[in-house]
Structure formats: structure tokens, C-alpha cells
Design a protein around this nucleic acid. Structure first.
Lengths: 151, 151
DNA sequence: GCATACATCATCCAAAAGGATGATTTTGCG
DNA sequence: CGCAAAATCATCCTTTTGGATGATGTATGC
């Protein structure tokens, strides 16, 4: 900011000098005042715009640490779309796996939690991906939420 | 915007009239040119600042509404938790990547959509995983939603 | 001028995920 | 009982993802 003020001062100085010069040369000429005024007006308008822009540029990192604990908008009113579930032909086990995937668990963790082998988890997830038309687990989660199969 | 231009024109008109008046009254007085110039400079500088501020003020409704057939579980009233974003130190770019991950895109697809290399996407995602405390992208999405960083 | 933050890209390596396929066991139902 | 759907597990192979680290360029702040 200090640099800007300095620059501003310098510019003003140069301007004043320039104006003095113009003044001495053109003061006698007709319409000199109008030209002079116009010049001053233009230059200062530009300068003003520049300053305005500088002033409003927000500082990059003004850490306004305001802790604000907000309860997550829990999907309390979640109702599973059983119809869609049926039309897609997704089995209960596959849905369970999808839910666990949505919780951000790895296949290994899901296997541990569901008391099955990791291979089984992979089979279920592959099937559910097929049925959802997903190619990745993140996509499966996205689609699962869209279809209201998982909260 | 049109309103602003009109207002600007009107102001200029009034100003010119005022200047004419001043001119006729004070042109004879000594130092009149200096005073005149100073006045013009001040007024136009203020005007410039005002215009600069107007220009940088983000317009209220720049967002182009694009209809999407995807009707996700109505996050109609989603408000990003900027405070949390700041405390976690997640940068805009990282947030963008997180959003694209949540849409179920692969790193390659994200790279294509964000016009960067896949390596860059991986860097951003790694950073955002670190900051979120996630080990997988599904987990990152889950946490991102919990923290209200993404819809 | 120098330190910092941010964004960008790269390389190497390991772990996880995904696709294809086949086999075995459970379970529900006519 | 016998069948079919569902669930379970495995193997092989490819792709994706994640971790660690370093380099470069560009702003910005002090």
C-alpha cells in the first residue's frame, strides 16, 4: 500500500510539472482553459479509476478465523426409492456395499465391516457399478444419491 | 449498467454547467486557472474512484442459470462454509478439483475439463486430501459434504 | 529484494480399484 | 426336492489412484 501512495505522489508531481509547462505555453491561446480543464479531468478520472480498482482489490489472505459450528443439514427426511432399486435390480447386499462405499471406505475396510472377503466386496461393487452405469466408485456414489438409493 | 451510464452523463452535464459558471465568475481573478484545475482534478478524481468502485462491485446476478437434468437431493439452500474453507487452508483451485471429484470424474476427465495436466490434478487432489484428512477420494467427497464445502 | 502462497507439471513407486470370468455355497420358493 | 437368485470367493490382468518429492513461474506481502 505504501508503495502505491508513493507512486501516486510521484505521478501527481509529474502531472503538476507537466501542467505548469502546458500552462505557460498555452495560457495565451484561445480555449486554453477548456483544453487544460479537459486534460486535467481526463487524467484525474483515469487516476481515480485506477485508485478505485486498487482499493477494492481484496487482500489475498486475510485469515478471518471465525469458528462457526453448524449442524450438518442431515437428510433426515430420506426415503429410499425402492422402485428404482427394483428396476435397476440392485440386491440388498449390493446396496449395503454401495452405502459403505459412499462412506468413503476402501474395499478392505468394507470387507472387514461386512465380514466378507475383499474379493466379494469387489464382485458386489462391480455388479452395482454395472447396474448403475458407473465406471468409478465416486460416480456410483453420485448416481446412488441422485437415484435416492442412499442418503 | 445502462442506468450507470445515464447517471454518469447526467453528472457530467451538471459538472460542465457548474464549470461554465465558475469560469465566467472567476476567470478574471488571479490564480483562477490553478483553482479551476484543482477543482476539476478533485471532482474527476472522486468520480473516477466512484466509477472504479462501481466497476469492481460484483454484479448481483452474473450466474447464468443452466438447466441440469440432474436433480440431486435438493441442496437448494447450499451455502459454502467459507470459514471452514479458510481454517483448512483449501485454495480455490483445490476446491474446484474436489467438486469435480464429487461429480464422479476420473483424474483424466478432470484434467480435460480444467485444462490442466493429469499430474496437476493429482497434486491438487493430494493436497486437498491432506487438508481434509482423507485417504481416498470417496472419503474426501464425504468430508467435503459434511464440512459444507461442496453441495 | 526476498519470502510466501499458489498453481502448474513431472517422475517414481506402491496400493487400490476395476474388468472378465469361473466356481462354490446359501437361501427362498414353487 | 430342485431350481434360480443371491451371495460368496478366487485368479489374472489393466487402469486408476495415492504418496513423496522436486522444479518452475507468477503474483503478493513486507
Amino acid at each position: 500500500m505504501g508503495k502505491h501512495v508513493l507512486l501516486y505522489g510521484l505521478l501527481c508531481g509529474i502531472l503538476i510539472a507537466a501542467l505548469k509547462l502546458i500552462e505557460y505555453r498555452w495560457l495565451m491561446v484561445e480555449y486554453s482553459v477548456e483544453i487544460y480543464g479537459g486534460l486535467v479531468a481526463t487524467v484525474f478520472a483515469c487516476l481515480g479509476i485506477w485508485i478505485g480498482l486498487k482499493l477494492t482489490r481484496p487482500p489475498r489472505h486475510t485469515e478471518t478465523v471465525v469458528m462457526r459450528e453448524v449442524v450438518v443439514p442431515a437428510p433426515a427426511n430420506f426415503v429410499r426409492d425402492e422402485a428404482r432399486l427394483a428396476t435397476l435390480g440392485i440386491t440388498p447386499r449390493e446396496l449395503k456395499i454401495l452405502e459403505l462405499i459412499a462412506e468413503g471406505l476402501s474395499n478392505k475396510e468394507i470387507a472387514a465391516r461386512a465380514f466378507v472377503s475383499e474379493n466379494t466386496v469387489k464382485t458386489h461393487s462391480s455388479r452395482v457399478f454395472d447396474k448403475l452405469g458407473a465406471r468409478r466408485r465416486t460416480q456410483a456414489v453420485q448416481l446412488g444419491k441422485e437415484f435416492r438409493l442412499i442418503p
